[in-house]
């Protein structure tokens, strides 16, 4: 974008300008390519290990009275991560079923449910958890790290199934409609 070469001697575009132009073009295209790729792959990669992240549980919703844990602490267990929010209407549809399903799994200790509360306020979360008598561990999605680690893009609710080796096995977008559906969902990792 220069008007520098106005003297008759140097007529062409100086080579360094050409280099700058092409490099910025390639950079721009690479950036767009990245954005496009991100936009088109809304889900975390199936059958790949899930990168680790921290969970800081809500008070009263800890796992075995531990306030802060990592996903990797759950190696050897099947983890069901349910992303929800108190402002999300479809989440309310599945909340009772999730709690019911949790009741049938919690004693065996083989399957862990973890609720991850997306873009929510503590007050709203508390109201929601009380309203649906939720008892499984719940943590806020601080700085949206968890949802972006899991590449959550679509909306809430979304549920992720992670097997004993920490590999993502299945993703459910939208609410579950029955306990049977939740059972079937979990059975894939068993």
């Amino acid at each position: 974008m220069t008007e520098t070469n106005n003297t008759p001697k140097r007529v062409g575009v100086p080579i360094w300008v050409q280099i700058v132009i092409w490099v910025s073009l390639v950079g721009l295209l690479a950036l767009m390519g990245f954005g496009l790729q991100r936009a088109r792959n809304p889900m975390a990669e199936l059958d790949q290990p899930v990168p680790d992240f921290n969970l800081v549980f809500y008070e009263g919703y800890e796992y075995n009275n531990t306030a802060e844990m990592k996903l990797s602490d759950f190696q050897g267990k099947i983890v069901v991560i349910n992303i929800w929010a108190s402002w999300c209407k479809p989440c309310e549809q599945e909340a009772p079923e999730l709690e019911q399903a949790w009741q049938s799994y919690k004693d065996a200790g083989e399957v862990v449910f973890i609720g991850v509360d997306y873009v929510d306020t503590p007050a709203g979360a508390n109201e929601y958890l009380t309203k649906f008598n939720i008892t499984f561990p719940n943590a806020p999605d601080l700085k949206s790290v968890i949802s972006s680690t899991l590449n959550r893009q679509m909306g809430v609710p979304e549920t992720y199934l992670i097997d004993r080796e920490g590999v993502l096995r299945q993703v459910k977008i939208g609410p579950f409609s029955s306990v049977e559906e939740i059972d079937a969902f979990i059975n894939i990792a068993r």
Binding site: N5, P8, V11, G12, W22
Partner: peptide
């Protein structure tokens, strides 16, 4: 477009 511009640049002088 950029390639064309660079190619014809010398002929576009004021």
């Amino acid at each position: 477009a950029i390639a064309l511009l660079i190619w014809r640049w010398p002929e576009l002088r004021g």
